[in-house]
Every structure is written in structure tokens, then in C-alpha cells.
């Protein structure tokens, strides 16, 4: 792999997204759900960063905030060194081209009344990428070819395709804008295992071919292990551990990461694994526990965990974790 440039493509700093769910008589928020509560990470050009965590931990909110579908409550998002979170809607639209998204549900993410050709033409048209009608047509054909769909797919409607094929159309739409970064929001979670593998391999190929960076949001560590360069583990709106794939899978530092990894099924039947079973549910982000968010479910919690909030600390090359145990 070629040496990565030092300037990150995307830099997220102390991003927060809070939702007010109850208001006082005078319109002041009295109950706030902290969906994302101060997370920071960088994505380098051509890199895949996976954001993992159980459902409800805020990982999709991060994705939607980065592509501008949600406004952050506070924090900064920098793309290629320039802030994009405080731009006007018009100025932001020009930056949209550089970050695209692939959605989880291949059925609701394509307009049922549009032909595939028109679905793919929309970003090309919006970003002024085609010089004329012939150019547009050849671009659409190329995109279908790139995601390995037949050419005649262009004139068909989304309901004529299977889930995996639809997800390829979704990927082609994201590629149509010629982005630098694609956010894959649980992009393969809704697919069958065999189709899932095909789509993951496709994403991997496209990433290498176009030098794309991916923010791969997933709860499935087996897939993440296959595709990622680095992993960020989220718990209740916060990142609890960031590490390159190798160290994270071999030597997870945070007890939550350890528990997640122990839940990944192994392909060898009958092999004994030490399974850490977490008790209880994810606490409500409207009412997070004091101290470390994880102490209510942590098998290794001690008295300090319920008093003091741990911060992300560097623990090795590129590896960071937020836990009192690693002090």
C-alpha cells in the first residue's frame, strides 16, 4: 500500500448531535437525547474507517451528519482541510459531490417511479458532470458496468431488481457524483450472506480502483474485519476505542470491544470461545449513566468508573481507548 498523505480527507472534531425531546413552557429544552456526544476521528484519503457499535449507539447519526442530512449541534467537520458544517445551503451543495452515501435499505432508497437511468443521471446532472446527452448516456453505462449490472438495466424500474442488485444501483448512484468519500450506512446489513459478500467485494474493488475513502458503518464485525483499515467502536454516542484492524481484532483494549468481538460467530463448529455476555440493554441516551457510559454493563467495572468519565487516550501506534483500566 502506498504511503498515505498526512492531511486527512475528512476530519471530525468533537461532533455532537443532541435532540431536545421535551420542552418547558417557555420553549427551553428540558430533556435532551445525546445521540452523538463529542466524537472525533479522521479519515485519510483512500482509507476505510469502520464505525461499529450496537443499534442505537448513534453511528448512523454520525453518517447522516457528515453528509449534511442532519445539522450538528456542535463540533466541526472538515473536508480536505476546509470546514463544511457551517456553510450556507448553496455553498454546501457544491461540497456534497465529494461525500456520498449508500443507504441500508435497498428498497426504500430508490424512487419507485424512476428508471435506473434517471436515478443515476440525477447526481450527474446536479453536479454538472456530463457535457451532453451522449456523455450522460456513456457515464450511466459505465456506472452500470462498474457495479456489474447489465446495460439494459438502465431502462428498467427498481422493483424489477433483487435486493443485491438494488444495492448495486445505490452504489452506482453514489459513484455517479465522483466522490472522495462514501458513507456506507449499514450498506450490506439487509442483504443475504452470499449477496453481502459480493457487495462487500464490489465495494473493496471500487475503493481500490477509484482511490475512494469509505466510512463503513456497521454492527457486523465479521464484515468489518474483511473490509476495513481502521475501526472506531462507538458506545452510547461516544467513541470508546479506535485502532487499526489488526490490533483491534487481536488485542482489543476496551471491555466493550472485547465483548463485541467475543460475540462474533466463529466458522469452526464446536470450538470453545470465551464469550463475554453483556447483561442488560443499552442505557437510554436521554439519561446516560454517570461516569463511564459503559460501567452499568461492564464486567470489569470498579468504583472509579461510576464517578469519572474516561477520556480517549493513546495506548499505542494509532490506537486509542477510553477506559480507566488502561491508565
Amino acid at each position: 500500500m502506498s504511503p498515505l498523505p498526512s492531511q486527512p480527507l475528512l476530519s471530525v472534531k468533537n461532533l455532537k448531535k443532541h435532540y431536545a425531546t421535551k420542552f418547558s413552557l417557555f420553549g427551553r429544552a428540558t430533556r435532551v437525547v445525546k445521540a452523538v456526544d463529542g466524537i472525533s476521528f479522521d479519515i485519510l484519503k483512500g482509507e476505510t474507517l469502520s464505525l461499529v457499535g450496537e443499534s442505537g449507539c448513534g453511528k448512523s447519526t454520525v453518517g447522516k451528519t457528515i453528509i449534511g442530512l442532519l445539522q450538528p449541534t456542535s463540533g466541526e467537520i472538515e473536508l480536505g482541510g476546509a470546514r463544511i458544517d457551517n456553510l450556507s445551503p448553496d455553498a454546501f451543495r457544491a461540497q456534497r459531490k465529494r461525500i456520498q452515501i449508500v443507504f441500508q435499505d435497498p428498497f426504500s432508497s430508490l424512487d419507485p417511479r424512476m428508471r435506473v437511468r434517471d436515478i443515476l443521471a440525477e447526481p450527474i446532472h446536479n453536479f454538472g458532470l456530463a457535457r451532453n446527452a451522449a456523455d450522460l448516456k456513456s457515464r450511466v453505462d459505465d456506472l452500470l458496468d462498474v457495479v456489474r449490472l447489465p446495460k439494459d438495466a438502465a431502462s428498467r424500474f427498481p422493483h424489477e431488481f433483487s435486493g443485491g442488485q438494488r444495492q448495486r444501483i445505490g452504489i452506482a448512484r453514489a459513484l455517479a457524483a465522483e466522490p472522495d468519500l462514501i458513507v456506507c450506512d449499514e450498506a450490506v446489513s439487509a442483504l443475504d450472506v452470499s449477496v453481502k459478500a459480493q457487495v462487500v467485494n464490489l465495494l473493496q474493488d471500487l475503493k481500490d480502483r477509484f482511490g475512494l475513502a469509505l466510512l463503513f458503518i456497521s454492527h457486523d464485525l465479521a464484515i468489518v474485519d474483511h473490509i476495513t483499515d481502521r475501526v472506531a467502536v462507538m458506545y452510547l454516542g461516544k467513541i470508546v476505542e479506535v485502532a487499526p484492524r489488526g490490533p483491534l481484532f487481536e488485542n482489543p483494549l476496551h471491555p466493550y470491544t472485547q465483548a463485541l468481538l467475543s460475540a462474533v460467530p466463529t466458522p469452526t463448529p464446536g470450538r470453545k470461545t470465551s464469550r463475554t455476555v453483556l447483561r442488560g440493554d443499552l442505557p437510554s441516551p436521554a439519561n446516560p449513566p454517570p461516569g463511564c457510559n459503559f460501567h452499568t454493563r461492564c464486567p470489569l467495572a470498579f468504583d472509579r468508573c461510576s464517578r469519572e468519565t474516561p477520556v480517549l487516550r493513546s495506548t499505542g501506534p494509532d490506537q486509542m481507548a477510553a477506559c480507566h483500566l488502561i491508565d
Binding site: I101, S108, E122, P123, R173, A177
Partner: peptide, 21 residues
């Protein structure tokens, strides 16, 4: 719906999102 969000993220203006989707 995701396809309306997708239209927004592929750079369609509000007017276009309303009119086309």
C-alpha cells in the same frame, strides 16, 4: 424515505426534490 434523503445528498435542490420525488 431514504430515496428523498438520497436525492438531497446527490445535490438536488429542495424544489427539485419536491418536484421529482
Amino acid at each position: 424515505l431514504a430515496y428523498v434523503e438520497a436525492a438531497v445528498s446527490t445535490g438536488s435542490s429542495s424544489a427539485k426534490v419536491i418536484w421529482r420525488h
